[in-house]
Design a binder for these strands. Structure first.
Lengths: 121, 121
DNA sequence: CCGCATCCGTTACGATACTG
DNA sequence: CAGTATCGTAACGGATGCGG
């Protein structure tokens, strides 16, 4: 019985940078993590409201992947007013410095080629 | 006449994080940047020697992309002992803090799930 | 409705053979 | 040595359906 989504990456090498990319180096993972850092716990449809317009099947697959890799969990539905929401684990929240550095790079280096870019958020 | 490789990203949103990912958020760009930061100017075949084993067509496409986006340039072949090498621009070198943060995250958070991971490099 | 899963077309990746 | 051509596979993206 093959798993729908692999639970762990195929490590390309022992390099920490490549290994980090093996976990969050796809097109959407860090965008999802960004939403969780900026807004806190977030529901499926709230992720869909983000301006990047991820499609529903991709979102479901990425949430499954991030959960399997211990970066997010479900909010306990019985204990929270917000049902069916996702939140960051410690491991996921620890990505904040990466997002900060990336945001700063983009803001400094991409303004001329992407005039509409926002100053940090 | 359609370009073989688009010269500029399709921006998903005005968010700096998403925009940074639109430039270097693929599977290989930051691995190539890492090699250039660690080793300095690097030739095509030296990139191929990296442990991640990128295939030749992908490497050529990514080098073209990174050049089109101003992150790398060719070393001046007439002035250098090392012909046909690539090097970082200021814009590319400015990604160092991103790689540092990612490397630290991986080293701290992925040791248990990836025992062979190296301590920074 | 909300949270997905399924179907299917399109785009990225990957292994390998090959050329200037 | 530095790529290109070819062709197969995997990821992505839009539309739609379906259970709770």
């Amino acid at each position: 019985m093959e798993p729908v989504v692999a639970s762990t990456p195929q490590w390309r090498s022992p390099c920490p940078i490549a290994s980090g990319l093996d976990v969050v180096g796809d097109k959407w993972s860090l965008v999802i993590i960004r939403d969780l850092i900026v807004h806190g716990p977030r529901t499926y449809s709230e992720f869909l409201d983000a301006p990047e317009k991820i499609s529903t099947n991709i979102l479901a697959a990425r949430l499954k992947w991030l959960h399997a890799n211990g970066l997010i969990t479900h909010v306990d539905a019985t204990r929270s007013a917000r049902n069916n929401a996702y939140q960051l684990t410690e491991r996921g929240a620890a990505l904040r410095p990466v997002l900060d550095a990336l945001g700063r790079w983009s803001h400094q280096e991409l303004i001329d080629v992407h005039p509409g870019i926002l100053s940090i958020d």
